[in-house]
């Protein structure tokens, strides 16, 4: 498995130390800006700044590259499909049968592809520099019930376990002569049926065990809890929040007035 479902990269940088709520505000502001702007250059600039920030926070290029590799198939799909499904505008670059590709179509595809990566990297900034406990606390801090945060955290925690379980089940089936890759697509899909049944049963058992374990450790839904590291907005957070606020307002105003 690659870096896994927990993207957190341990560190003590200024970005790691920021309050999760500040980083969540950054994610929200990024979404507003990226969805609002129609300028490729702005989205590109955003991505460059985010990468610089991540590097400054000590996130290795390898981890960033791994994330790009995960995003690449979707980006490619957008770059191909967008110009095909948006044939309007001039100049026309390709006109063959029903296919019509225009320069504005390619430009819009490029913008959509970069925008998707921008949105993803906004979330990665949060996930790469906030540990699970901080993430849950941050979500609770912005008003979500603790149970929702815990469900998310448990989901992240259990995905590798479920993948491991799936690997064990398929290995056991293969040891008994199961070779789905030799079948056609439909037969292969059918062949996976019993494997998925075993996986669902295993997942239900895990859930049962987890419910008992949570109750045995004093967890009661809806009951007040304390936290070992209470959230605290420090000076750096206030400065960042102010910066995010001013920049967002300025860019929204610029989009509205000039573009």
């Amino acid at each position: 498995m690659g870096p896994g479902f927990d993207l957190y990269t341990a560190g003590t940088s200024w970005l790691h130390r920021l309050d999760p709520r500040t980083k969540m505000t950054f994610v929200g502001a990024s979404f507003v800006l990226l969805l609002l702007t129609g300028q490729i250059i702005l989205v590109l600039a955003y991505l460059v700044v985010v990468h610089a920030v991540l590097r400054r926070a000590g996130i290795p290029w390898r981890r960033i590259g791994w994330l790009w590799a995960r995003m690449w198939p979707l980006t490619l799909l957008i770059l191909i499909l967008w110009p095909l499904s948006n044939p309007g505008g001039e100049p026309v670059l390709v006109q063959w049968w029903w296919i019509r590709i225009t320069l504005p179509g390619i430009g819009q595809g490029l913008l959509a592809g970069l925008r998707v990566n921008g949105l993803a990297f906004a979330v990665y900034v949060l996930l790469l520099t906030t540990d699970q406990s901080g993430l849950v606390q941050g979500l609770v801090g912005i008003g979500l019930p603790f149970e929702w945060g815990l469900a998310l955290a448990i989901g992240l925690r259990y995905l590798p376990l479920l993948l491991g379980m799936y690997g064990t089940i398929t290995d056991a089936q293969r040891a008994r002569g199961w070779t789905p890759e030799e079948e056609g697509l439909v037969r292969r899909a059918r062949a996976y049926g019993p494997t998925l049944v075993a996986l669902v049963i295993g997942a239900l058992r895990l859930t049962d065990g987890l419910t008992l374990a949570l109750a045995a450790r004093g967890f009661r839904p809806g009951q007040p809890r304390t936290t070992r590291r209470p959230l605290q907005l420090r000076w750096a957070d206030r400065v960042c929040l102010a910066g995010i606020g001013v920049l967002t307002l300025a860019l929204v105003a610029a989009e509205w007035i000039y573009l």
């Binding site: 540990d131 699970q132 406990s133 815990l150 925690r157 374990a213 450790r217 009951q223 070992r228």
Partner: peptide, 28 residues
């Protein structure tokens, strides 16, 4: 429990040990 792994809910050992204490509402 017999299977320790199935009762873990946290990503780090310290968070795991603190989970029950936070549920009890103890001060930091």
């Amino acid at each position: 429990f017999q299977d320790a792994e199935s009762q873990f809910v946290s990503m780090t050992v310290e968070d795991e040990v603190a989970f029950g204490l936070e549920s009890l509402g103890l001060p930091p």
